[in-house]
């Protein structure tokens, strides 16, 4: 099981996955908006999305868990 964490502080702009989706390593899970930039947050391992812990528009801090992949 691997946590996908925010690489920096920002707002959740777009969620690309839902629970049950199969993701590959390097795939964009969520895109944050920070410093006026789109910040893709990628899966670090292959797996299935177990849970998405944020909603579009949420503020996340660096290190916050965005999704859980197993």
């Amino acid at each position: 099981m691997a946590d996908v964490r925010a690489s920096m502080a920002g707002n959740v702009w777009k969620i690309n996955v839902k629970p049950g989706d199969v993701v590959d390593e390097g795939q964009d899970v969520v895109i944050l908006e920070s410093m006026k930039m789109e910040i893709p947050i990628v899966a670090e391992d292959n797996g299935t999305v177990k849970e998405v812990k944020v909603a579009e528009g949420d503020f996340v801090n660096e290190g916050d868990i965005i999704a859980v992949i197993e």
Partner: peptide
């Protein structure tokens, strides 16, 4: 590298 953290300097 805009692909990581928007290329912002830390």
């Amino acid at each position: 590298q805009p692909r990581v953290k928007g290329g912002v300097l830390f």
